[in-house]
Amino acid sequence: MTAKGLEVIEHTVHLTHEWINELCERLDWSSHKDALRLLRVTMRTFRDYLSHDEIAQFTAQLPLLIRGMFYEGWNPSPTKGKDRHLDAFLAEIDAEVSNVTEYRGSEDIRTVLRFLNARLSSGEIEDIRASLPEAIREFWPSTKI
């Protein structure tokens, strides 16, 4: 037990570092800050396509700090329709991370999605994929081999 009894905070910080380190390795990036930024932006971009129930199920599997980043700035009231095309989805992410030196566009976004496939239950990933527009669902690699 820690001196202040805040093991849950220490655990989530440790787990968040594990996630960032693994993602950085998968991306072959040197900047952990940029890898976290790409993860955050990618998750926030597909968040608006999901139902509130699906969001709650998805985030239950995230480390607490990453879950907070996912929800940060979210307005759960109905939003106007999002463009359902893959190009718009990718452009929304590109607009947030295109100034990252190591960013390689859709290749890196797919790496983030594969990372989520590896870290979360395949059932939950498939539920999320099923909630997305067809073109985006096809872009997100399936957990089924």
Rank of each mutant, 00 (worst) to 15 (best):
F89R: 06
R110Q: 15
F139H: 06
E102T: 04
F115N: 05
D87A: 14
E72A: 15
A130P: 03
P141V: 15
I109R: 05
D83Y: 04
R40Y: 02
H17Y: 10
E96H: 12
Y49R: 06
W74Q: 14
L120H: 12
F46L: 14
E10R: 09
Y71S: 13
S121Q: 15
F89K: 10
K4G: 00
I136Q: 05
W29E: 03
A56R: 14
F58S: 04
L15S: 06
V97Y: 03
N99Y: 10
R84C: 08
D28C: 12
E96F: 02
S121E: 15
T111E: 03
I9R: 13
S121H: 10
M43H: 01
G68D: 13
I109P: 01
D48S: 12
L65I: 14
F115D: 03
S51F: 06
R104Q: 11
L38F: 01
R67A: 12
D48L: 07
T143G: 08
R114T: 07
H32R: 11
R37G: 02
F89S: 08
W29G: 00
I125T: 08
S51Y: 07
R47N: 08
D34Q: 11
A91F: 02
F115E: 04
A91T: 05
L23D: 04
V8K: 09
P133V: 09
S98I: 02
E7A: 02
A95G: 05
F139A: 10
R137C: 08
S51V: 08
E126D: 14
R84I: 09
L116R: 03
T2M: 00
D48M: 10
H17I: 09
L50Q: 08
E54H: 13
W74N: 14
A95M: 06
E126M: 11
W19A: 02
D87Y: 07
T79Y: 07
A3Q: 05
I55E: 10
E107H: 08
G105H: 06
D87R: 13
V41D: 01
E25S: 10
L90T: 00
S131M: 07
M43I: 05
L65A: 14
I125G: 02
I128A: 04
A88L: 05
D108A: 05
W19P: 00
S106I: 03
V41M: 10
E7H: 01
A56N: 10
E25A: 05
V41F: 00
L86W: 06
T143Y: 01
L15P: 00
N99C: 07
R37M: 05
Q57S: 09
E10D: 08
L64V: 09
E107G: 01
N21I: 07
V8R: 08
F70D: 12
A118Q: 13
F58A: 09
D87T: 13
T143H: 04
F70Q: 13
S31T: 03
I55D: 05
V97A: 09
E92D: 15
H17E: 12
W29L: 02
V97K: 07
A118M: 11
T79V: 11
N99W: 09
V100S: 09
L50W: 04
E102M: 06
E54W: 01
E107R: 13
D28T: 11
K144T: 14
V100E: 11
G68A: 13
M69Q: 13
H11W: 00
L90M: 01
H32T: 10
G68K: 15
N117F: 11
A95F: 03
F139L: 04
K82I: 08
L38R: 02
V97R: 13
T16C: 02
I109C: 08
E102D: 12
